[in-house]
């Protein structure tokens, strides 16, 4: 949509060639976006360039930055903790996001049937996703108590002995994933909005054909929902790859390094050990991974995302 507006702007118009009225308009426009643009330069673009430079430096904040060439890069290649963090973040992302979306989609489809009480269900199911992240982190920290928390009480009903959850190398990642999945309400709300955009006439037409609910789901709902699924997937992956607060508050990356994530590793290097150069490099690696994943998704999208008549 944004691309289309290019047509409005006069191609390569210079200030000189403008009428006074147009020049006035252009000046107004520049002034209007100036606060944002300055902010972009000062708080985004400038820092990005600066942190790119920092990746070639060693800097502990006390003494001035010292140029070390590729030393940070060499360290990165041998850094076992980086590999662990990358792997953990990857596992966390590729399990939690699809699981979250699957449940969100399923519940959204049920809510979209508009049975009585739908509004209440929707509101209640949405609440976990809006619980402040620090509150939910402390809550789940308590739920996953190795003694008698809610989680152990729950599995106790099925005769399963108490587990150590966040203190168990094998269970800490599934536990963190479960917490993320619990907050599926945001994705669900987005799916509901997408479902409401599907023209009712398609279903009515399909009804006349005697289509079964399942074939309507498969042939109308899912194809027309693919843009929404795509949106949720992109947003979800970007978000999950940056996970920080729950890990910081609940596990600190442990036990051992079994829940060390990229976000936490960057924080540790940057703000606990003050290896600003190496932390910048890690942040850039995270950025490049997120960008690559997003680009891959956009290029795969052509194969499965259905844009209705390519309207625009």
């Amino acid at each position: 949509m944004a691309v289309q507006t290019i047509g409005h702007a006069p191609a390569s118009s210079s200030h000189k060639g403008m009428s006074p009225l147009r020049r006035r308009e252009a000046i107004n426009g520049y002034v209007a976006i100036l606060p944002w643009f300055l902010g972009f330069l000062i708080f985004t673009a400038g820092p990005m360039v600066y942190s790119a430079w920092l990746t070639f430096n060693s800097w502990e904040l006390i003494t001035p930055p010292r140029w070390v060439g590729l030393a940070n890069f060499r360290f990165l290649l041998e850094d076992q903790l980086f590999r662990t963090a990358l792997w953990n973040t990857f596992i966390y992302t590729v399990v939690s996001v699809p699981l979250q979306l699957l449940i969100a989609l399923g519940v959204a489809l049920l809510l979209n049937l508009n049975i009585r009480g739908t509004n209440l269900y929707r509101s209640l199911i949405f609440l976990p996703s809006q619980t402040p992240v620090v509150a939910s982190a402390m809550l789940w920290f308590f739920i996953f108590s190795p003694t008698q928390g809610l989680a152990n009480a729950g599995i106790g009903l099925f005769g399963i002995p108490p587990q150590r959850w966040l203190w168990d190398v094998n269970l800490v990642k599934p536990a963190l994933i479960a917490i993320a999945v619990w907050a599926f309400g945001g994705a669900m709300i987005i799916f509901l909005a997408g479902l409401q955009d599907i023209p009712q006439s398609l279903y009515e037409a399909a009804d006349l054909d005697g289509a079964t609910p399942f074939s309507k789901l498969l042939n109308i709902t899912v194809p027309l929902l693919t843009p929404t699924i795509f949106f949720n997937l992109v947003i979800g992956l970007i978000g999950a790859f940056q996970v920080f607060t729950p890990v910081y508050l609940m596990t600190g990356g442990g036990p051992g390094t079994s829940s060390m994530m990229m976000g936490l590793l960057i924080y540790r290097h940057g703000f606990e050990e003050f290896n600003m150069g190496y932390a910048s490099l890690l942040a850039w690696v995270l950025f490049l991974i997120v960008i690559t994943l997003t680009i891959i998704q956009f290029s795969l999208a052509r194969r499965w995302v259905y844009y209705e008549g390519d309207r625009d």
Binding site: T5, I6, H15, I27, A32, M48, I238, F287
Partner: peptide, 24 residues
């Protein structure tokens, strides 16, 4: 308003949406 570079700047702004917070 219309001004030279508007659509480029708008795209620039949109792309900064994807920037991980940790990077800056």
């Amino acid at each position: 308003t219309r001004f030279p570079g508007r659509d480029f700047l708008f795209m620039l702004m949109l792309s900064s949406l994807m920037l991980p917070y940790m990077v800056t």
